[in-house]
Design a protein around this nucleic acid. Structure first.
Lengths: 205, 205
DNA sequence: TAGATTGTTAATCGATTAACAATC
DNA sequence: TAGATTGTTAATCGATTAACAATC
């Protein structure tokens, strides 16, 4: 396991993995840095450089065996296993996430769903029974869950994050439109559709 | 309007804007690059440099008037107006987006919702009547819509994107787990929860 | 062999940070 | 005035790209 890989490189690997999986679905068995780069709109040199941090996965003259490269990237990203994920928030967005079928074959499985509304606690949501947010610590700790998704209003997000982290969570996907303050051994990714759209309006005439 | 601002700078402005709005909600009237940087986990120098691309918004010794800075950033990002947004896909995720209350005061309003399922077309979804995807071109063009959200399966996403773009859309928020090929005058932002989580598992022990 | 493509090095390009004069 | 903080310059740091020997 090589050390000190730039985070920006790590950030591109899941995109490569997704594109490679799709190439495989389309029946391709081999690809090249040029082909992949063209699909993703990035340079072939960048792809080769990124991959070379982890080893030589290709062959001169022919390129990359897609199946093999997918396997290697899964290992690098540690998604050659299934991570249990906690979901906090059973509103519209939380429900959509709970029903989403796309986690399983990419390394994740929602393991429990929390909500703080007494009306919702005990109700079924897809395959889950909604648990009280009071039970976050107990459940997270017992199952050893390291990853959580936060899909609640901004006002409660920091408090919930603190509790998740206290219970052992080390990676948070935050849908609440607010920045979280977390210790440096905890990683956060943000999804806020408005932030993403505001980033594009600048370029509209 | 200054030219040639790095895109990475543009990408941070919505995050600044969100944090400033929250500071205002909390009752602050003034802030500094240090305070804002601390909240966001970035350096004060970066914030000052980023803002300085667009003008001197602060005052030595005292910092930034939050209300004024919010106003200026909204202008820079062109979200001092309300953009009409088309939503394609009325599944779980599309429904969650259609019901989301957080667009309005940040510059966006969903204007129409499309789905290709005959069962759904004509049904109500929140304030909308679901339209057939066959009518995408007509509606987008008539209303002059420039922004769209795609919340459909990967298989149909490229085709829908092509049609949206053909009808005049110039910015796409893509929730489908696939890379889109678009002309260079069209901007795309990607939201794929799995990609975001795979970016974090690398760091988990 | 001839053509293609990798992995890697060096050069270029761009972004971040440190530092400080200006000034509120 | 004294303390604080901006806007900006120069220095540092890091990422991307170009180029090519190696080799399939």
């Amino acid at each position: 396991m090589p050390a000190n890989i730039p985070d920006i490189v790590i950030g591109r690997l899941p995109v490569y993995l997704r594109a490679l999986t799709r190439l495989a679905q389309e029946g391709h068995e081999v690809t090249s840095s040029h082909e992949l780069g063209q699909r993703l709109g990035i340079s072939s040199a960048q792809i080769r450089k990124d991959l070379s941090h982890f080893g030589g996965f290709g062959k001169q003259g022919t390129g990359y065996q897609i199946g093999y490269l997918v396997e290697q990237l899964r290992q690098v990203l540690k998604v050659d296993q299934e991570w249990e994920v906690a979901l906090v928030g059973a509103g519209d967005l939380g429900s959509a996430l709970a029903h989403y079928k796309g986690f399983g074959d990419r390394g994740f499985r929602i393991a429990c769903v929390f909500d703080n509304s007494p009306q919702k606690v005990g109700q079924r949501l897809g395959d889950f029974t909604i648990l009280s947010t009071d039970d976050i610590e107990k459940n997270i700790r017992e199952r050893g869950i390291k990853i959580a998704m936060i899909a609640i209003p901004a006002e409660k997000a920091q408090e919930v994050a603190d509790r998740l982290i206290g219970a052992g969570v080390r990676a948070i996907l935050n849908y609440a439109p607010i920045n979280l303050n977390v210790p440096e051994n905890v990683r956060v990714q943000y999804i806020d559709p408005v932030v993403h759209m505001q980033r594009m309006t600048y370029y509209l005439t």
